[in-house]
């Protein structure tokens, strides 16, 4: 009965929504949109090639600040929820072969994430994507080598430190922007460099770095907190 009722209501809602969405105009009703400007002037205005990165860390950098703050808040919330005084730690890992293999692979994972973070303004990728890869390292540590290994190599305090550093780096770049360009998160033209090269695109690179550190450490903390719970029985 309930299922049937729900299905009927949802079907009608979907139909009505679909009918209404049919009248979406084919092109923007405004002719001089921000999107057009971004496409035309991204290289000259920011020095970045990756337009999405340019939008995320320059044109709409404040959104990204809010977004990384959301991650920060989530991490704080999860740590708050899962914190107990005695954290059970497991030292059980997978077999030796897996451990050796990942011993070789892990540095490359790290390298890849650093590459993605630092080339955020040139190629697809950026702070978030690279950060997620950074967090993978913790996952590898915890699963392959046991969480006690992760605890000793990469203790939660250090993760917190890295995360906070990333956040403050973002904020710091914003404040430097005030000093250099007069507006928060401004992209100082002095840092632009030659478009297409690694040290270019002004403040996008440090912001990418900050976000990468923050997201990496944040997700690592989330994973670490959660796995502590599930491994409790061992």
């Amino acid at each position: 009965m309930k299922v049937f009722l729900t299905a009927i209501i949802l079907a009608f809602t979907g139909g009505a929504l679909f009918v209404n969405l049919g009248s979406i105009p084919d092109s923007f009703l405004l002719s001089h949109t921000a999107s057009r400007f971004y496409r035309e002037a991204v290289v000259t205005e920011t020095g970045a090639l990756n337009t999405v990165s340019a939008i995320l860390y320059d044109f709409r950098a404040f959104d990204s600040l809010g977004e990384s703050t959301v991650i920060f808040a989530t991490v704080s919330g999860i740590v708050l929820l899962l914190s107990r005084k005695t954290l059970p730690v497991s030292s059980a890992g997978l077999s030796l072969i897996v451990k050796r293999t990942f011993g070789i692979l892990t540095p490359f994972v790290f390298l890849l994430s650093v590459y993605i973070i630092l080339h955020g303004h040139l190629s697809p990728g950026g702070g978030f994507q690279g950060g997620v890869l950074l967090a993978v390292i913790t996952i590898i540590f915890c699963i392959i080598y046991g969480s006690s290994f992760d605890l000793s190599r990469y203790p939660p305090q250090r993760k917190t430190l890295i995360e906070t550093t990333g956040a403050l780096l973002f904020l710091g770049v914003g404040i430097i922007g005030i000093a250099l360009t007069g507006s928060f998160l401004g992209n100082p033209s002095a840092w632009r460099g030659v478009p297409g090269t690694l040290p270019s695109a002004g403040s996008i690179v440090p912001i990418n770095l900050g976000v990468g550190l923050k997201v990496g450490a944040g997700l690592a903390i989330i994973f670490y907190s959660m796995i502590q719970k599930t491994l409790k029985r061992q």
């Binding site: 009722l5 729900t6 949802l10 009608f12 809602t13 009505a16 929504l17 009918v19 209404n20």
Partner: peptide, 16 residues
């Protein structure tokens, strides 16, 4: 929670 699609449906039908 069923109120949510119900109200949306109601308003969408209203628009039409």
């Amino acid at each position: 929670l069923l109120w949510i699609p119900l109200i949306i449906l109601f308003l969408l039908l209203w628009t039409n």
